[in-house]
Each structure stands twice: as C-alpha cells, then as structure tokens.
Write a protein that binds this DNA or RNA. Structure first.
Lengths: 207, 207
DNA sequence: TAACGCATTAGGGTTTACCCTTAGTGGGCG
DNA sequence: CGCCCACTAAGGGTAAACCCTAATGCGTTA
C-alpha cells in the first residue's frame, strides 16, 4: 500500500501544475499532477494518503463537482481549493461541502505549504483512527445475527438474565453468545466493548 | 429561562435591521436587534436559543471579531454572516471559524429564511445534547478525587482487584468507592458509566 | 450424504461484582 | 471540642459473570 503522503494536483493549466508541483517538491513532498478531474478519478486515488490541490474552474468537471464525486465514492482526501477567479458563493459552497481550505491566486507560497502540511497531517490522523474503526467493523461483521443481538443488549447495559428473557432463550445460551462476542471482537473487558460500539455508532451517524 | 428561539440581528444600518426583523417576523420568528457588536454582547445572550444574523463589516467590533468573542465566551449560537461587500478571504475565515453560513447581499428572502430555520434547528439539537452533557459534568464534579481516580480505572476496564493493587488500597475500599461512583453519577450499569465518559471525553477533546 | 457452521441448551466450578452493616482515622469548621 | 466528610477497611451474604466441557437439532454446502 502506498502510504506515503502525496500531493495530488488537478488543474487544467500545465504551467500552474508545474509551478505547484515544483513548489511542493521543494520541501520534499511527493506530487502527482492531473490535467482534469476525470483523469484524476481514472487514476483511482482511493486509499492514497495526502491531500488534493484542486482548481475550482476547469473545462469538463469542475472542482466542486469533483469534490462531490469524491464524497460520493467515499474517497476521503483533504481538498484545498485554489482559484484565481472565485466568488464568495463558490468559496462558501466549497467549505460547507467540507473543503479543507480555499485559497485565492495569487497565493503566498509559504502559506500554501503550511496549509498543505496541515492537510496532510489531518489526513494522517483521519486515516489512523479510520483504520481502527475499519478493524472494529471487520470484527463486527464476523458476528452471527444472534451474537450481534446479544451484543447490543449487553452494550445497552442489560444483565444476562434480562437478555435471556428478552430474547426468550436460556441464561446459559446468553452466556455462550456473550463469550463468543467478546472473543470475536477481541474485547478484553465490558468497557472495551462499550467503547467500541459508542465510537462506531457516533461516527456512523456523522458520516 | 427564555428557551424560545430568537433571531438576533446585529447590523449598524438601521434600515437593514428593520428589514431583516420584518422578514423574520413575517414567518413568526421572534427577533432582537442590535446596532453594534458591543451592544449585543452587553445584552448577555448567553444561554439564549436561536441564531445570529451578523453583518461582517461594522464600525467598532467587526462581525468576525464578534464571532471570535462569542467563541471565547463559550456562547454557542449559530452565526449567519450577511454582507454586501465581502471578499473570498473573509468568507473563508468566517466559515473556518465555524460560521453556520455566509450570505451575500442582495439575498433571496426565502433562502435566508430557510437558512435561519436550519440554524435554529441546529441550535436546538446542540442544546438538547449539551444539556445532557452538562448534567453529567455536574455529577462528575461531585466525585471526590479518590472516587474519580477509581472511576477512571473502572472505565478503562480494570477489575477491582487490579484497581486495588494499582492504588495500593484494599479490595473493600475499591468496592466502596466504586459503589459511591455509580450512585453519585446515577449510572445504572457499567455500560452506562462507560458511555457517559466516552461522550464527555470525545466532546472535551473537540471543544 | 456427510461435514460444517450456527443456535441452542446444560452442568460444575471459579471469580467477580454488588449489597448491607460497621468502624477506625485524619482534616476542616462552627 | 464536637461534627461532617473523605478515605480506609472488614465480614458476610447474594447475585452475576466467566471458564471449560459437552451435547442436540437444523439448515447449507462441499
């Protein structure tokens, strides 16, 4: 997996791409440039770490449309918009759609580099916590329907006795399911189990 | 407590204030107008529900400065900026500082009303969950230092035996502290206790 | 059809948590 | 000084959770 941070550059103007790419490489950042949104999407950047420098006004798919498409495809990459002819509504829409920043040309080189570094760091943290959540989701997927049912009641704070009467099964059955839940989820304690679930559900509701 | 949603209007232009106020009242919204940021702050809007329509360019304290001051004072009110002479950096700064929206004059009446309704609804939900968190914080404050210490270990998943050796006290003492923790926090189960803590800590880290 | 995974039940034993009562010590306060 | 509170600790009992083993029925799949 290419986990090295990459600064993706999408701009229809070759001079701009080269300029940005040069600037990024001057501080040791790895870059990949694309002349259009569709070229970028074709390169399937899913799973790649880093950030995206995106021109907002381009022939074909616009920057805002590409941002929407990335959202659609669950490709989480911090997007820094760069535009020379931007108006306020554009900037507002971009930021409300989750853009990391919105920078006007001409820009200050150092400010852009700082912004890129923050975006990359943000992406890194996002991926770190995301990886943990993915692992939990994978483990959760290995539970049988019955086990998941028992788990939910356990997390809600129900005692085994309550769970057994709720599900209409014996106490011993609940104990068996519960033990398998703890084992499959690699939860070493009840609090661990509850924390997993709370964090999974809270992020599930947001995203 | 005045829990009715109020649309606060802060603009140095009386004509604009009247116009906005009239528009809001036309759909039954309660309004309060202020000619400057400081007048608004003097009215101590802390705890009031609703949203804030804020002109970005005013004599004295600017809209952006007022937004910062509200943040400083922990006054959480969705801010909708309204400006006739805004540039992109202003809008970017406002939104990155947490503004609910940023609207340019001249604006479409219906769009602004929709925005205000969304802001009020957002504020309502924020307050609902905030009230629960405040109650938990209050209960947490009633714990003695030792009780809090025990609670943290319990939440981390440590068994009483482990806690007793960690703190260097007897098992019985831990049981006593633990029982008082559950009682004071009105936690009816271990999962309840863990959920409280996770939610409190996750929001503590963000805000 | 045989093997497998799944859900279910069960016994027996160990460990842990929970509940109630009692009680000693040290600190701060009226 | 006496009182309240935090912290400590104990005994003793009940309930719940945890661990290991074992068995049955029921679908699906190899």
């Amino acid at each position: 997996m290419s986990n090295t941070a990459t600064v993706f550059i999408v701009d229809d103007d070759e001079a701009v791409r080269n300029s940005l790419s040069f600037l990024m490489q001057s501080v040791g950042l790895q870059t990949e440039s694309f002349e259009s949104a569709s070229h970028f999407l074709d390169a399937s950047p899913a799973g790649r770490a880093g950030c995206l420098l995106l021109d907002i006004r381009m022939p074909g798919m616009s920057g805002l449309e590409l941002q929407g498409e990335l959202e659609e495809r669950d490709i989480q990459l911090p997007v820094i918009f760069i535009s020379g002819h931007a108006d306020v509504p554009m900037a507002v829409r971009a930021l409300k759609s989750g853009a990391f920043d919105f920078i006007e040309k001409p820009f200050n080189d150092q400010l852009l580099l700082d912004c890129v570094q923050r975006a990359i760091e943000s992406d890194r943290q996002q991926r770190a916590s995301g990886a943990q959540l993915d692992e939990w989701r994978d483990r959760l997927a290995t539970l049988t329907p019955r086990e998941r049912e028992v788990m939910e009641l356990v997390v809600e704070g129900a005692a085994n006795k309550v769970i057994s009467s709720t599900l209409g099964v014996s106490l011993k059955t609940v104990e068996a399911h519960r033990a398998r839940v703890m084992e499959k989820l690699k939860a070493d304690s009840l609090s661990h189990l509850v924390r997993m679930n709370v964090l999974l559900h809270s992020l599930q509701g947001e995203g």
